[in-house]
Design a protein around this nucleic acid. Structure first.
Lengths: 144, 144
DNA sequence: GTAAGTGCAAATGATTTGCACAGCG
DNA sequence: CGCTGTGCAAATCATTTGCACTTAC
């Protein structure tokens, strides 16, 4: 693979999934997607492998709004747009947003190394079909 | 209080803490801060009360970078600057950053309702004294 | 052959839930 | 007094870890 990691069946399969276009799966989701074609694969291996990938700098780990960690195989710096209904996460390139200026007032509080944008709203497909509304989420819940 | 919530000892104490200036405590931290003056207070009540506050729109709940939920009693819209060493979260007012423009290209993917900025870097006190470095965090860990 | 990788099962940590009692309005 | 809020204990969920076996290099 790279970074001196051993090339094994589970790793190849997991790497393929997590680096797919526009996906941001949780460890559990990766496990579910693979359990059919690799019945012997254990959940633990998925967790451990994703952790290994993160340390190797192959993927980025981040907590989604529901307190679950998700993995992002797109390593070029970018932002996210999360649909508040279906919870899908869309990539937003830095070329779309432009570089975000760091306010002068922050200089006095530390050294800023990166600024990430978190867009919230309703995605196109949720707008079109009334919006499927995931889990116990309600429209008038405090947060957006 | 407001929102038709009963005024009880635990609620008053928890409300006072979570709306303190510049704090972003987790449920566990709120519990720790109160367990001395209120030995009978149970962790469950803290969790449940914070959940009630969130539903009532009194506080905002968000996952920190380590997969723990934190609560923010400052309801005026603002952003956060997280120190990657000590993990402290600082508020950044919208007056400091200005309104963030939504890229044209996002229009075709949905309706944006809010944009939140997540600043990452090293806070002043961590820069000054070598940087205390929380938990097993290391400097060269992949993420910033 | 050997250290790294994996599966299994148990441990941990954060958060939620069921139930009976307590106390605010 | 009635219903909401609380404490206690057990349950659940996501994630981690110890150990022994397997395998890539």
């Amino acid at each position: 693979m790279k970074a001196g990691l051993r090339l094994t069946g589970p790793r190849i399969a997991i790497y393929r999934i997590v680096t797919g276009e526009g996906v941001h799966p949780s460890a559990e989701e990766v496990y579910q997607m693979l359990s059919d074609e690799m019945p012997s694969l254990s959940r633990d291996t998925v967790y451990r492998t994703l952790g290994t990938f993160e340390e190797a700098g192959l993927v980025r780990k981040f907590p989604d709004g529901d307190g679950v960690f998700r993995y992002d195989g797109k390593m070029r710096f970018h932002h996210h747009f999360t649909c508040s209904r279906c919870r899908t996460i869309f990539d937003v390139g830095e070329d779309e947003t432009g570089a975000v200026p760091v306010p002068e007032t922050l200089r006095s509080r530390g050294t800023i190394e990166s600024v990430r944008l978190e867009f919230r709203g309703v995605c196109l497909s949720c707008q079109t079909r009334g919006g499927k509304m995931t889990k116990e989420r309600t429209i008038n819940s405090g947060e957006i």
